[in-house]
């Protein structure tokens, strides 16, 4: 085990110890404000085995992951080509940038009312809100990634006679990959952030709904449970994206 891992584990244990100390051991923080470890354990057991807010944990997690995946994938499959186009073509940039500059400062959650009016209370509205959140960082970073490619790399490719799709997939995208992946990470993060907020409104399933229901039930242990599962799901998806990045940019660590 590396020194870093040891320190990391030690820190986590210290936080858990402090938690136990402040709640169960001394009672300084009461159960009505924050659950003690035992209450947390019970809540986790309840949602895993019996279910809470109408479903068991895996159904909530799957629903949330589905919404994030849909919103993220749609955002990336629109944002990446758009960023590429804006980075490569000055005319496209001049055309698209003004629209983008208007959309960009709108907080993603401000789209919720419009999304509900357009698409109702179902999954569509939530995916739309996640889309707007995830779309912006993927466009900006792809745009910057393309713009920051060393000009001599592009000249070398043209000199070699590389053009068309081979130029886009063999030169532009790999050269911009580090920044594109920065954008994807930010997009994914934004997707999870927005998901929870989007599910607070009119959802019947999902981690945001669990949090909402637990708040209404004044059930701190279940609130913490919901938060922990959001964190775990977010971390898992970030890890997956990291693996993909590692595969794609394998040359950097070779």
């Amino acid at each position: 085990m590396s020194r870093r891992t040891v320190v990391g584990i030690a820190t986590l244990l210290a936080v858990a110890g402090l938690w136990y100390l402040l709640t169960a051991a001394t009672g300084w923080v009461g159960s009505a404000r924050f659950p003690n470890p035992a209450e947390f354990g019970t809540a986790v057991k309840q949602i895993v085995t019996g279910g809470y807010a109408g479903a068991r944990i895996h159904e909530h997690v799957l629903q949330s992951c589905k919404l994030v995946a849909m919103g993220f994938l749609v955002a990336v499959s629109v944002g990446l080509p758009l960023g590429l186009l804006m980075g490569w073509n000055r005319r496209a940039e001049a055309l698209i940038n003004p629209v983008f500059l208007i959309i960009r400062p709108i907080p993603p959650l401000a789209w919720i009312p419009l999304a509900i009016v357009w698409l109702g209370l179902g999954d569509g509205a939530k995916i739309m809100v996640i889309f707007f959140a995830a779309f912006v960082p993927s466009v900006i970073n792809t745009h910057a990634g393309i713009r920051n490619i060393e000009p001599f790399l592009i000249e070398a490719a043209r000199m070699l006679g590389v053009r068309g799709p081979r130029f886009v997939f063999g030169v532009l995208l790999p050269a911009a990959a580090p920044l594109i992946f920065t954008g994807l990470r930010l997009s994914l993060q934004a997707s999870w952030t927005t998901l929870v907020a989007a599910e607070l409104v009119g959802a019947l399933l999902g981690l945001g709904y669990v949090l909402n229901a637990a708040a209404q039930d004044i059930f701190p242990a279940m609130i913490l449970t919901g938060m922990v599962f959001v964190a775990l799901s977010g971390a898992a998806s970030t890890w997956l994206l990291g693996r993909l990045e590692q595969r794609v940019t394998r040359w950097r660590t070779a």
Binding site: E150, P174, A175
Partner: peptide
């Protein structure tokens, strides 16, 4: 600046 493709 050599201009090699670093990913190749």
């Amino acid at each position: 600046q050599f201009a090699l493709f670093p990913w190749k």
